[in-house]
Simulated assay, not measured.
Amino acid sequence: MDKVEAIVVGAGAVGLAIARAISSTLNDVVIIDQHSQFGSETSSRNSEVIHAGIYYPNNTLKAETCVRGKHLLYDYCQQFNIPHRAIGKLIIAFNPAEVQQLETLHQQALQNGVTDLQWLDAKQLKKYEPDLNGHAALFSPSTGILDSHTYMQTLLTHAQQRGTMFIGQTRFLHASFQVNHWVVKFQNPDGSIGEIASQWLINSAGLGAQACAQQIDGITPSLIPPLYLCRGHYFTYSGRNPFKHLIYPVPEKNQTGLGIHSTQDLAGQLRFGPDSQYIEDLDYEVNSALKADFIDAIKRYWPKLDEDKLHAGYSGIRPKLQAPGDSSKDFIIQSSREHGLPNLVQLFGIESPGLTASLALAERVHALIASK
């Protein structure tokens, strides 16, 4: 049986960041993923936004790794010429009641260490974005966008330069700890079954993290949190982009989502979304009937929207830990302190701001391994 020092299950942004981080101290790291390419699920179906750390409760993993990860990510992109831009974000209030919500967000941001937010009244907002409709806004200058594919490719390249191997089309089947290592069983692309012995096992499978955990011997079932699939749809815009910044409404109740916002890629292509729709199965369909809801949401802040130029685009699915109507749930990083098993780290519920937080999450996983 082949032996390695670590197996990372899942080649999304977080799994790749973890592999890069731990390969600095471990040899023979292997990343496996059921898809042929890295980042084929949540990591490649999002807004590609570098979040500032505004929304999340103080002292949570989401808040701490978002704020820390933002700084790490900007530095990483700058150092390795990954396309990105600190484009800034406007969070819009449409009435006095929503201004109070903005004030609550502002206080939350300050508690999280985000100290650069700026208040804009309606007149100042018009100077920032003449086509916008709004009563007031918070401006976040440290919010940005990046080329997520190039980012993930760079993470993988750096891991591979340290000897890491990426094996696609490989499905995790089972793991058990035997004497001093994990025996990991997996299905090869040709359907055959293989086994690898590994000192460390990292479950960073995103949408599949709970399913993987259920196949790890010794895991107490109550430590595997429920998974709720939440699909977000995006619509693209074929007309001229009038915005210099990202445009967000106040977030949805319980932070199910951040509302149908206006974002853009580095070429300036305008897109809107995502909304939030809980679903039962993995399904990336974008129903064109949703267009009416998108039009209503967008016209609140952009009355000049040309409806004929709005088209169904793509969707992504968030691995949420909260049920519909439930309060927001935090990221989970489990180690032996929680589950009692040696050399196993599991990550659950890594949705937004997971892309922003990826380097900080990897830093924490690396610290768990380095402390052994």
Results as ranks from 00 to 15, higher is better:
61 L>Y: 07
38 F>K: 06
48 E>K: 14
105 L>E: 05
79 Q>R: 15
30 V>D: 03
26 L>I: 10
48 E>Y: 08
48 E>D: 15
37 Q>W: 02
29 V>H: 10
36 S>Q: 14
109 A>E: 04
78 Q>P: 00
91 I>Y: 02
52 A>M: 00
108 Q>K: 12
77 C>I: 02
31 I>R: 04
84 H>L: 05
48 E>L: 07
38 F>I: 15
56 Y>S: 06
52 A>R: 00
64 E>N: 14
26 L>G: 10
47 S>H: 09
99 V>C: 10
69 G>A: 03
68 R>G: 02
86 A>N: 15
105 L>Y: 05
94 F>K: 14
59 N>S: 14
66 C>Q: 05
53 G>M: 01
105 L>R: 05
53 G>W: 00
52 A>W: 00
33 D>N: 06
47 S>T: 14
92 I>R: 01
26 L>A: 09
107 Q>T: 06
78 Q>L: 11
68 R>W: 00
101 Q>W: 04
89 K>L: 07
30 V>H: 09
30 V>W: 13
36 S>T: 10
84 H>C: 13
50 I>L: 06
108 Q>G: 11
30 V>E: 06
61 L>P: 06
26 L>Q: 11
114 V>G: 08
90 L>A: 02
33 D>V: 02
74 Y>P: 03
82 I>Q: 03
91 I>L: 08
65 T>L: 09
34 Q>H: 11
111 Q>P: 00
89 K>M: 05
57 P>L: 04
34 Q>I: 08
107 Q>K: 12
58 N>R: 07
79 Q>V: 01
38 F>C: 10
95 N>W: 05
48 E>C: 11
89 K>I: 04
35 H>K: 13
107 Q>R: 12
59 N>F: 12
77 C>K: 02
49 V>M: 08
53 G>N: 01
73 L>F: 02
80 F>N: 06
86 A>E: 15
103 E>G: 03
103 E>L: 11
112 N>G: 02
61 L>G: 08
105 L>V: 04
101 Q>N: 13
91 I>F: 02
49 V>R: 06
84 H>E: 06
40 S>M: 13
88 G>H: 07
74 Y>M: 05
41 E>I: 04
111 Q>N: 13
57 P>S: 07
69 G>P: 01
57 P>K: 07
49 V>Y: 05
37 Q>G: 05
27 N>W: 05
41 E>M: 12
87 I>L: 13
29 V>F: 12
107 Q>N: 12
38 F>P: 13
100 Q>D: 15
59 N>R: 14
48 E>M: 09
35 H>P: 01
87 I>P: 11
79 Q>F: 01
80 F>L: 10
86 A>F: 09
69 G>Y: 00
99 V>P: 00
49 V>K: 07
113 G>W: 04
48 E>A: 14
32 I>M: 08
96 P>W: 07
31 I>L: 10
94 F>H: 15
61 L>D: 07
85 R>F: 12
99 V>M: 09
